[in-house]
């Protein structure tokens, strides 16, 4: 599992020695009108670690998060690099325009902040913050996050029970508005297999049939999809 992420982590923990421990409050707001975030992963880590990077292939751990919301693999990796991590601050799904707040005590050297969560309903879409440099100056900082596609699953937009497992096509759940049924599938291929900015859900206006099980007036979004407010104390 760790082999794919190894080039990003590099395996060498260069202790900077200068970045000191910090105490952070992190508020995360879902800015969308119809998309839910699965349990969030909020982590402070060294500049040598990354949870994801655009233009690179997703790790298996990232794939499991993006396709099914599982944080197990990413958490293991973060524990392995002595990151300071908070899992699931919202205690479940973070719904449209809802906010959650958490605190994070960071160890010296863990001076980058990353956040990920799967976006529902999508096939392998996730909201992400990659290695934001945590300021040393106390204050309140605002960051806007984009929606990414892990590039690991075709965006067929079909809601299928149990499809959260890697390599099982489909969207595992559609919280909120009931999804359509019996869609024929938007696409069967994922030609860009690297992490990229999500092109958005297509949806359709058929509750039964059509290409997509999603609704085009409910399940689309424009970036940014989340706002993060970090207070450095």
């Amino acid at each position: 599992m760790k082999t794919r992420i190894t080039p990003l982590i590099t395996g060498i923990l260069l202790a900077s020695g200068t970045a000191s421990a910090a105490s952070l409050d992190v508020k995360i707001t879902n800015l969308t009108q119809g998309i839910y975030f699965t349990p969030l992963l909020v982590s402070a880590h060294t500049s040598n670690a990354m949870l994801f990077q655009t233009g690179e292939q997703a790790s298996e751990a990232l794939q499991a998060m993006a396709e099914g919301g599982s944080l197990t693999g990413l958490s293991e990796i973060l524990t392995g690099v002595n990151a300071n991590t908070m899992e699931n601050p919202a205690g479940g799904l973070l719904g449209p325009v809802a906010s959650t707040m958490t605190s994070l005590e960071t160890d010296a050297g863990n001076d980058r902040l990353s956040i990920v969560a799967m976006m529902l309903p999508t096939n392998d879409g996730f909201v992400g913050l990659n290695s934001w440099p945590i300021p040393t100056a106390p204050g309140t900082y605002h960051i806007y996050l984009n929606a990414y596609d892990a590039g690991t699953e075709a965006n067929n937009e079909l809601v299928v029970d149990g499809s959260g497992a890697p390599n099982t096509p489909g969207i595992p759940a559609s919280p909120g508005a009931a999804p359509g049924t019996q869609g024929s599938g938007v696409t069967e291929t994922e030609s860009n297999t690297l992490v990229h900015i999500h092109r958005g859900n297509l949806g359709d206006d058929d509750t039964t049939g059509g290409k997509s099980d999603l609704h085009n007036t409910v399940h689309r979004w424009l970036n940014p999809v989340a706002k993060v407010t970090v207070t450095v104390k």
Partner: peptide, 20 residues
């Protein structure tokens, strides 16, 4: 129903699948 301010999801339009 939602009755809360959110970011706009964009318009769909008749050319992009909203026939009405």
């Amino acid at each position: 129903a939602l009755n809360k301010v959110a970011m706009h999801p964009g318009v769909v339009g008749m050319d992009d699948g909203l026939t009405t």
